[in-house]
Simulated scan of single mutants.
Amino acid sequence: MTQLNTYLRRIPAWLLYTLGAAYPVWLLYQGLTDGLGVDPVKVMEHALGERALQLLILGLAVTPLRQRVGLNLMKFRRAIGVIAFFYVLAHLLVWLVLDVQIPSQIWADIIKRPYITIGMAGFLLMIPLALTSNNWSVRRLGPSWRKLHKLTYAACLLGGLHFVWLAKGFQLEPLIYLGVVLALLALRLPKKAKAVTPA
C-alpha cells in the first residue's frame, strides 16, 4: 500500500479534473452521433446522475480507506467533490433543458414528484460546498469550513434516496448504492466509550 500511495502522490490533481471534464463531452458526442440508443437524453441524464453518486460515495470513502486500509486519496478529495457537483449540475441541466423543457412543468415535477424533490434538495446542499472548495474559503472560514462540509453526508444520502425512489419497481442496484452510503455514514458515528469497571 505504501508503494501505491507513493505512486498516487505523483499524479497531479489537474489530471482528475481533465478526465472529469472529458466524460460529459464524450457523452454529448455519443448522443449527437446516435451512440446512446433510441433515447439519448435519458441515457445522458441517468449516466451523469449515476457517475455523480459514485463520485460522492468515493469522496465519502476517502477517510475510511485511509484509516482502515491505508490507501491515501486525500490529495484528490477536493477534485472528486467538485467533479461530482458539476456532474449533478449537468444531470440537472439535461433534465431541465433537454428532457422537460417546459418551465411550468419543471416546477410541478419538483413539487409533486418526491424523488425530484429529494434530488433538488441534495443539489442545493452541494452548492455551498462547491463554492467553498478552494483554499481561500478554507482560510476564511477556519474551523467552520469543516462543519459546513459535513453537508456532504446529507447530500450523499439524499443522492442515494433519489436513485432508489427514481427506480421503478424493485431494483437491486439503487439499493446497493444506498446501502454503501449508509455503511460509510455509519463508520462516522462516534464510538461509545468502553465502560470502566471500578476496582
Rank of each mutant, 00 (worst) to 15 (best):
Q67M: 10
F86H: 14
V97H: 04
F76P: 14
F76E: 06
L73N: 08
D99A: 10
R77Q: 11
L65G: 03
L92W: 09
G59I: 08
R68V: 00
R77W: 06
W95Y: 15
V94T: 10
H91W: 12
M74S: 15
R68W: 02
I102P: 00
S104A: 15
A61D: 01
L71Y: 14
R68M: 02
L92R: 00
Q105R: 15
W95R: 07
T63W: 02
P64Q: 01
V97E: 06
P103Q: 01
A84E: 08
V62W: 06
R68F: 04
H91F: 07
I80W: 06
G70T: 13
P103D: 04
V82C: 05
A61T: 09
V82M: 13
G70S: 09
G70L: 13
V94D: 07
V94K: 07
V100M: 12
L92T: 13
V82H: 07
A61N: 05
P64A: 08
G70P: 11
G70H: 12
P64M: 03
V82L: 15
G70M: 10
L98W: 11
L96Y: 05
F86T: 10
V94G: 11
K75C: 02
A61V: 04
A79N: 09
L89M: 13
G59T: 07
G70N: 11
A84K: 07
L92S: 01
M74K: 14
S104V: 13
V97Y: 05
I80R: 03
H91I: 03
W95H: 07
V82T: 10
V97S: 02
I102S: 02
K75A: 13
S104M: 12
I83Y: 06
P103G: 04
I80C: 04
L65Q: 04
F86R: 02
T63A: 10
F86S: 09
V88D: 00
V82N: 07
T63S: 11
R77E: 05
Y87I: 06
V62K: 05
P64G: 02
P64R: 02
I83G: 04
R66H: 12
L98E: 08
I102L: 09
V100G: 01
L71Q: 10
L96I: 15
L71F: 12
R68P: 01
V69R: 12
I83R: 02
M74C: 08
D99H: 13
I102R: 14
V88G: 07
V100K: 10
G59L: 08
Q67I: 00
L60C: 09
F76I: 03
S104W: 01
A61R: 03
L73S: 08
L96P: 04
